[in-house]
Simulated scan of single mutants.
Amino acid sequence: MTKRLAQLMHVYPDQYEEYERRHNNLFPEMKQALLDAGAHNYSIFLDKKTGNLFAYLEVDNYEKYQQIAQSPACQKWWAYMEPLMETNSDQSPVTVDLHEVFHL
């Protein structure tokens, strides 16, 4: 069963263009890791007034998707993106998971 996920993150105001540029040139190995983990319909939206990011994606298997954080591709991507956004000590983005209250 497909699971819908949504998260909030934050990109630094002076890094909006670079953040978008890097996503437009997503590492091939990161793209493959996402696909291998069953991710699809993945979108990230930016509120340019606040730097807040809203990410939405669907995954086929939530447990399998959770393992992507351990992949070399993801670790490399996090290190690459760390200067642009708020991150945790392991370089993962600081995220707030959102609870779905409605779906049509």
Results as ranks from 00 to 15, higher is better:
H10G: 00
Y12Q: 13
Q15D: 08
Q15A: 11
Q15N: 13
E18N: 08
E18I: 06
Y19C: 08
Y19T: 04
E20W: 10
E20F: 07
R22S: 05
R22V: 12
N25L: 05
N25E: 15
L26I: 15
P28M: 13
P28L: 14
P28T: 15
E29G: 03
E29D: 15
E29P: 01
M30V: 15
K31H: 12
Q32C: 05
Q32L: 15
A33D: 05
L35G: 03
D36M: 04
A37M: 02
G38D: 03
N41E: 14
Y42P: 02
Y42N: 07
L46V: 03
K48W: 11
K49D: 14
N52Y: 15
L53V: 02
L57F: 10
E58Q: 13
E58H: 06
E58W: 05
N61T: 06
N61W: 09
Y62I: 11
E63N: 09
K64Y: 00
Q66H: 01
A69C: 00
A69E: 03
P72I: 10
A73C: 06
A73M: 03
C74N: 10
C74T: 12
C74V: 07
Q75S: 05
Q75W: 11
K76A: 12
W77C: 01
W77I: 01
Y80L: 09
M81H: 07
E82F: 08
E82H: 15
P83T: 10
P83L: 06
P83A: 09
P83I: 11
P83C: 09
L84N: 05
M85A: 08
M85R: 10
E86H: 12
N88V: 00
S89E: 12
D90F: 15
Q91V: 07
S92C: 02
V94N: 07
V94H: 13
T95C: 05
V96S: 09
D97I: 01
D97Y: 03
L98N: 03
H99Q: 13
